Simulated assay, not measured.
Amino acid sequence: MSRQRKRPIAYVVEELDTFDAAGSSSQENISIGNAIDDIPMEPMAFLQGLNSGNLMQFSQQSILREMMLQDIKTQINSLPKLENHNNEDYNFSMVLEEPPKSHWMYSEPLNKLYIRMNKTFNIDATFKIKMPIQPLNLRAFLCFVKDVSGPVLRCQNHMSTDPIKDDPSKRESLLRCENPNATYCGTAEGKSIGERYSVLVPLNLSRPSQHSGGLVRQTLVFSFSCQNSCFGRKETCLVFCLENNNGDILGQHVLLLKICTCPKRDRNMDERQLEKNKIKSLSAASEDDEVDGPDAKRKYRRTMTQDIKEEVESNDSNDMPFVPADWQVSRTLDGDYRLVIKCEQKDMLLQSIEGIIEKAAVASLRNPQSSKLRQHVNNLLNLKKCAQKLP
């Protein structure tokens, strides 16, 4: 910037000397005026407008800015914060586009990736090129949502069967990257961003494409060598950090993650649960807004129904559930299970049997080779016929 400001000033001096020698003052004024108009005056005007009060404010802002930059530089040596941010205006983000008939799923309302173990997925890193251009890296690592200090490690069962033997750092890393020049960092005891297991990938500062809005877009390929069930089904996330060569974090993007055997089923279940929670919260809010009037009975019925449902759920989760005295649950000597219930009405008995038949039929369809399940369904159907003949 300083060089650009010196060029117009030098131009004015040369023109002044030339016109002095020629003795033409009118052209001198015109040339000097045009040259001075080209000089950017914003910094001068800014400095002239400063008084003692805002000079102090300017100094304080500079100190605060230095403190913020120092905090950014030390983030790599601190525990991760699970939030998206851009500290240096790089417009950094990660773009995940689910292809048709894929072995992984993405839930947009949950911002969550569902994928099978040892299956790859593509994700694009987008960022803006800033001057002066400096080499940038992308760091990716896994983190527990409710315990950011706990390192995410591979289980011994999968590690013992891993074919990779010559690269211990890659063998112990749960996250794998297929991009060339990717390096594996960290140790099993590491808790900070720079010390925990992570993958560091250099980013190519290629020209931005017209379709990406002027941003550089680079595709990265990752996979996972364990499942969530390997570490107690804890909720996990995948953290992406944009860094320079000094290790300063310039941007961060967080993506929730579940590594499972059936991504489509788990995504649908989580999205249905999300919708139920939304409906429940809206229903609770509407009930709080209601007052005594024509809808008082309806509100009372909804409240009673909700109380009964919560009571049933609490009984189901209790370690010592309540069982009526005329019901019996036991296990026979040959290892089978025995259930005896007593119903006051015939319809309730038939509905209970039909519910058991439905569950058994679904299990039989999923396991068509199981003769025991087919026999169990037939026994239940005969039981229903006998119950229908009761007076």
Rank of each mutant, 00 (worst) to 15 (best):
M1Y: 10
M1L: 13
M1S: 14
M1I: 09
Q4R: 12
Q4Y: 03
R5S: 04
K6L: 05
Y11L: 09
V13I: 13
V13E: 15
A21F: 09
G23P: 03
Q27W: 07
E28V: 04
G33L: 07
D38M: 14
I39E: 01
G49S: 10
L50A: 07
L50K: 10
N51D: 15
G53M: 07
S59L: 14
S62R: 13
I63K: 11
R65S: 13
M68K: 15
N77Q: 03
S78G: 06
L82Q: 05
H85V: 15
N87A: 12
E88I: 05
F92M: 01
F92V: 08
S93Q: 08
E97T: 14
E98G: 05
K101R: 10
S102W: 01
H103C: 10
W104M: 05
W104H: 08
W104D: 02
Y106I: 03
E108L: 14
L110T: 01
N111H: 13
K112N: 10
L113H: 01
Y114P: 07
I115T: 14
M117E: 13
N118Q: 08
N122V: 04
I123Y: 00
I123L: 13
F127G: 05
F127V: 01
I129W: 01
I129V: 10
M131Y: 08
L136T: 00
L138E: 01
L142P: 04
C143F: 00
F144Q: 12
F144P: 02
R154Y: 00
T161I: 12
D162L: 04
K165I: 07
D167K: 11
D167Q: 14
D167S: 14
D167V: 05
R171V: 02
E172C: 00
L175K: 01
C177E: 01
C177T: 04
E178H: 12
N179H: 03
N181V: 01
G190M: 07
K191V: 14
S192T: 14
R196M: 00
Y197Q: 15
V201S: 05
N204T: 11
L205R: 00
Q218F: 02
Q218S: 03
Q218T: 05
Q218R: 02
F224N: 04
Q227E: 11
F231K: 06
D248W: 03
L256N: 15
C260G: 02
C262T: 12
P263Q: 02
R265M: 12
R267C: 12
R272M: 09
Q273W: 06
L274I: 00
N277K: 11
A284G: 06
A284C: 06
E287K: 08
D292P: 01
P294E: 13
D295G: 07
A296K: 09
K299V: 12
R301Q: 13
T303M: 06
M304F: 04
Q306R: 10
Q306N: 11
I308D: 02
V312K: 08
N315F: 05
M320G: 07
V323M: 11
A325H: 07
Q328K: 09
V329S: 14
S330K: 12
L339H: 03
V340L: 14
C343W: 03
K346I: 10
K346G: 05
M348W: 11
L349C: 11
Q351P: 00
Q351Y: 04
K359G: 13
A360I: 00
A363W: 00
P368S: 11
Q369F: 07
N379W: 10
N379V: 06
N382W: 04
C386Q: 12
L390N: 04
